[in-house]
């Protein structure tokens, strides 16, 4: 078992143990960072929330939104957060829960606050500018996908026959990489990825594990390969794969279990070969 798998297993056991001792009919305290908008100061607010069986962080946030009164009886505004699918496939609801980044829709209260009065802290992701409360603007994350040209350059959307044949093993490799839901967990946990509000600096700041992995995904596709050189150029430049410091947090927090550190190694190799090849051929 790899260290990442061992860690996951350990965390799963911990959650299971909490579930087993969760008390029915309890209330838990939600400590939430509130911020009214960019540049505004932030503050903590606490709420006491009754827990239903199967409650998760989003359902509790909904409860707070409908009853926006803090624990010391102060009327406040409903908290703002981002969410979509509520099934852990869209990536919208990512936030920092009890100090660690994860999706809030799949975060069961029983697993995090099993006893009466236990506290759950919610913070917005710290690597992206806050829009309001728990909602952050992840535009830079999507910009990174443009940098590595994360697409297959097809001729047109008109019928031109089937795509390339592919072995089931190869399909599995691509499928795993293709499950990335752009949630940003890997970026939040990465010590090399830091908040950058200045859009003009995005193209030079660290691109992040998700995009490195996407570059690999599209380099693996028969037609996607056409842009391989351009992707590797981007990854060789400042902010590319070289800026990864191999802390390997990314792979541990990725909810989709994407083999990010393997992608980083693979792109390390590809950029090495690319550099040598272009040195001798003079071609980029």
């Amino acid at each position: 078992m790899s260290s990442t798998e061992a860690l996951r297993e350990h965390e799963a056991q911990e959650r299971k143990a909490n579930r087993a001792r969760a008390k029915a009919g309890r209330s838990v305290i939600f400590k939430i960072i509130r911020c009214d908008g960019p540049g505004k100061p932030s503050r903590w607010e606490s709420f006491k929330v009754p827990v239903e069986p199967g409650s998760n962080v989003i359902s509790c946030l909904k409860w707070i939104a409908a009853n926006p009164v803090t624990i010391d009886g102060k009327q406040t505004t409903p908290p703002v957060w981002d969410s979509g699918c509520l099934e852990e496939v869209c990536g919208a609801c990512t936030m920092v829960i009890n100090g660690k980044v994860r999706q809030s829709c799949s975060c069961l209260i029983d697993e995090y606050a099993p006893l009466e009065g236990d506290t759950i802290t919610l913070e917005p992701m710290s690597k992206f500018p806050v829009v309001r409360d728990l909602w952050v603007d992840r535009a830079r994350l999507f910009n990174a996908l443009k940098r590595v040209k994360a697409w297959v350059p097809i001729d047109s959307t008109y019928a031109q026959g089937a795509g390339p044949k592919e072995s089931p093993e190869h399909q599995q490799t691509r499928y795993r990489l293709s499950e990335c839901m752009s949630c940003g967990c890997c970026l939040e946990a990465c010590p090399q990825y830091n908040i950058e509000e200045d859009e003009s600096k995005w193209d030079e700041s660290f691109i992040g594990a998700h995009a490195i992995s996407q570059a690999r995904l599209f380099n693996e596709h028969e037609t996607g390969k056409r842009l391989k050189g351009e992707r590797l150029e981007e990854l060789s430049d400042k902010g590319g794969v070289g800026d990864c410091g191999n802390a390997q947090n990314c792979v541990k927090v990725c909810p989709k279990h994407i083999p990010l550190t393997e992608s980083i190694g693979a792109m390390g190799r590809a950029t090495t070969i690319h550099a040598i090849a272009s040195f001798f051929t003079g071609k980029k």
Binding site: S3, L7, G99, K100, A189, P191, Q192, N194, F206, D243, G245, N246, A247, Q248, N249, K252, V253
Partner: peptide, 25 residues
């Protein structure tokens, strides 16, 4: 120069690999 581009976060993500990253710096 490179070390200054990173921000250690072992307090939150106390994984062994992450410790090694910070220790490397």
């Amino acid at each position: 120069y490179f070390a200054r581009t990173g921000k250690s976060n072992t307090a939150r993500y106390a994984y062994q690999d992450n410790w090694r990253y910070s220790l490397q710096r």
